[in-house]
Write a protein that binds this DNA or RNA. Structure first.
Length: 381
DNA sequence: AATTCGGGGGA
DNA sequence: TCCCCAGAATT
């Protein structure tokens, strides 16, 4: 590796940030570890534009780690709804309680200790330590991986452990000498990756702007910029079917709290039958009310409820695409003559005008919102 | 080492 | 449609 680059990278990057870096984002320029931590978690796998709207709202709702720790998990999930990766919200809440009980309400500054907290991995630990405590700890997010893989023309999939270790070593070697430079340096890395050394249209190709590392970058010098970093190919995601029960009684709809480890864990949703692999040409219309109930709610005595409902009708079919699954949700609708008392705390009648209080999966939220707009309540299609 | 967790934006 | 993104936890 070029020894000169090790010494010059950090100062050059910081100089670049002074001219072309991002500034004025709500979570920047703040050394409160709680504020830094929330922003880092929210920004994981989530675009800046989205976080820009949701971060201030979250901070207003939960201004301190103490208030977050004291909140009910349902409140946290409701605030997180729509952001995805709901384990982040569960870990966030769990971590807040950890900080209160194990660290007397104050985040540790040591990245090794930070990494022991729920939902904080090595990279997020480094970011919190750098921004909040000026620790000389490296980060290695998608931006940094791309920058380093190009700068040093790292071959091999970045998911590969040996390559990943190599990138961590480089990230450590390139840190600025002075710890006081850590916040601006860390921010500069993210900004440079997000705005200049981008995946598809890096500045070094076809832009009038001049990359400060053009003569250092091995990928640029060997015309490999768009080929790096290398990734292992993804297999096409499998398809699944599921049945969702839309049971209405007057202006209320029956919601079921999802198991915490399932997809959309902990969110309130429509009662759902078990997921099964999609079978082409399968006959779907023959499901009786009783079968639908037993599949969706095996844990409750549903006979009374089933009998109180008129027969289910196929009301809608929604395709929803996840990163790793493609899901067809079959919506079965029935009206219930009255709101039967429910002993199971995971089942609840919710008036349509109070849906906003619950953290609903995005496609279900859209479905039910459409429902509340239709007078008389029938679904279209 | 591979898989599992959403959602939105862009090409 | 496919790829990408301020990754971590689980197996």
């Amino acid at each position: 590796m070029s020894k000169a680059l090790i010494n010059t990278f950090a100062p050059k990057l910081i100089a670049w940030h002074g001219i072309s870096g991002r500034s004025g984002l709500p979570w920047q320029g703040n050394r409160d570890p709680y504020a830094v931590w929330v922003s880092e978690i929210m920004l994981q796998q989530t675009q800046v534009a989205t976080v820009l709207e949701r971060y201030p709202r979250f901070m207003k709702r939960f201004p301190t780690v103490k208030k977050l720790a004291a909140a009910d998990i349902d409140e946290v999930l409701a605030e997180w709804a729509g952001l995805g990766y709901y384990s982040r919200a569960r870990n966030l809440h769990s971590c807040a309680k950890q900080v209160m009980t194990e660290f007397s309400g104050k985040f540790p500054s040591d990245p090794v200790l930070l990494e022991q907290l729920k939902g904080i991995g090595r990279s997020t630990a480094g970011a919190v330590a750098a921004f909040a405590f000026h620790e000389r700890a490296p980060i290695l997010d998608a931006n940094v991986k791309r920058i380093l893989a190009r700068l040093f023309a790292i071959e091999g999939s970045i998911q590969d452990k040996a390559v990943n270790d190599q990138l961590w070593n480089l990230a450590t070697d390139l840190l600025p000498k002075k710890s006081v430079d850590m916040p601006v340096y860390t921010q500069a890395l993210m900004d440079f990756g997000a705005t200049w050394c981008t995946s598809r249209k890096p500045v070094c190709l076809g832009s009038e702007r001049k990359c400060p590392f053009a003569k250092d970058c091995q990928a640029n010098l060997s015309d490999q910029v768009l080929l790096l970093p290398q990734k292992t190919k993804k297999t096409k995601s499998p398809e699944f079917d599921c049945n969702m029960l839309l049971i209405r009684s007057g202006n209320a709809v029956l919601l079921q709290k999802r198991p915490s480890k399932a997809i959309w864990g902990g969110l309130w949703s429509l009662p759902e039958s078990t997921w099964k692999p999609r079978v082409l040409g399968s006959k779907e219309a023959d499901l009786s009310s009783q079968e639908l109930f037993e599949a969706a709610m095996p844990q409750v005595k549903t006979l009374a409820l089933a009998k109180a409902c008129k027969p289910f009708q196929k009301a809608n079919e929604i395709k929803h695409v996840f990163t790793h699954r493609r899901l067809w949700m079959h919506i079965w609708q029935a009206n219930c003559s009255k709101e039967l008392t429910l002993s199971n705390p995971d089942l609840k009648w919710v008036p349509l005008n109070q849906l906003g209080r619950y953290g609903l999966p995005q496609p279900i939220k859209i479905l039910l919102q459409g429902l509340s707009l239709v007078r008389g309540g029938g679904l279209k299609n």
